[in-house]
Design a protein around this nucleic acid. Structure first.
Lengths: 191, 191
DNA sequence: GTCTATACACCGATAGAC
DNA sequence: GTCTATCGGTGTATAGAC
């Protein structure tokens, strides 16, 4: 068969590479992710990676960053909208964040790419994205009846709780810390 | 004068370099901290750095890690001991952590060196150190009357809160987030 | 679309003059 | 104790065969 006659899937090879590339960038950071490591993770040669990413490492990181933002949006923040009661949406958001970081066993690629030499390129974009997400989270707390100031506090409280749990689990090399802490964070949500 | 006749300061040149080196490792990570950047930050040539650190970059990182552990211990965790009431010691601990990360404007070098290729070398040591610190923090909560299980939860709650506040402030490029969140964390401590 | 071979810059590290 | 000069290795990136 002619591979696939349907239109719009001419990028399938490229997108198939992204998960393996993401693993390397997550574990090694942008500066530690060498083309040799990236090639080994994908099973391709270094040169072949340039066929899919003519811009090289920088283009891979940019594509992965876009991908990670979309994934965190879809897994977690998009659940803040909808017709469910606001408190149930908040719980779904927390669960979605947990999915995004694989229950504490992975890392947030967005946060990784905010550090080192990649941070100089993407740091401001990332800061803007988190500012927007933070506002949407606060708005959902307002739907629960919180006044604006308290809702803002609750939003940063939850975001810091999530990222702190992920960070401590990483430092302790113990994902169970993340899972246990998430259970506690969920109990503190408005009922 | 003969520079300084008192004994025991033969390492002063080396220790004087550490702050500049720490800045580079904090901002660039281990893999992004090239000898050229490190040399520029210290005002020395790359070769001269090898006079003070014969083991090169790895020895610099190891020295900085030891230094950071001592600094976090002295600034924050050592304040969990003493004759003050336990609740005041906890407040002093939080203030000490704030000092250690320069009120949210810096980063925790220990956490930075737990990632990338440096993590493969130092990750297990760091995990053990944080496990010990976590236990000592829990013990202080027990002194406040918390039962063991609740004290353990309060300890990881506080640690995740501190590191989450630091992480979110970094992502948002806004240290005021860290300062505001710390005020809230202190209010939640046992009275 | 994948590969081998290669170009060239920079990396970490060393030698040796001063 | 600092430097310039240099080494070998690896980094990113490209050329061109298949």
């Amino acid at each position: 068969m002619a591979e696939n006659a349907s239109p719009g899937n001419h990028r399938s090879a490229r997108t198939d590479l992204l998960p393996a590339l993401a693993d390397v960038f997550q574990n090694m950071g942008y500066d530690g992710a060498t083309l040799s490591l990236l090639a080994a993770a994908t099973g391709l040669s270094r040169a072949s990676l340039y066929h899919h990413f003519p811009g090289g490492k920088a283009e891979m990181a940019a594509a992965l960053l876009r991908d990670a933002v979309v994934e965190l949006e879809q897994s977690a923040f998009s659940r803040l909208a909808g017709t469910l009661p606001a408190d149930e949406r908040l719980a779904a958001f927390v669960d979605g964040f947990s999915d995004y970081v694989h229950e504490g066993e992975g890392r947030c690629l967005i946060a990784v790419l905010a550090t080192g030499s990649a941070g100089a390129v993407h740091g401001t974009t990332i800061a803007g994205q988190f500012a927007e997400w933070s506002h949407r989270l606060a708005a959902t707390f307002e739907e629960c009846g919180y006044k604006p100031k308290r809702a803002g506090r609750a939003a940063t409280d939850l975001l810091t709780g999530l990222y702190g749990a992920l960070q401590l689990a990483t430092l302790l090399k113990d994902p169970s810390v993340f899972r246990a802490q998430l259970k506690r964070l969920k109990k503190r949500l408005p009922a």
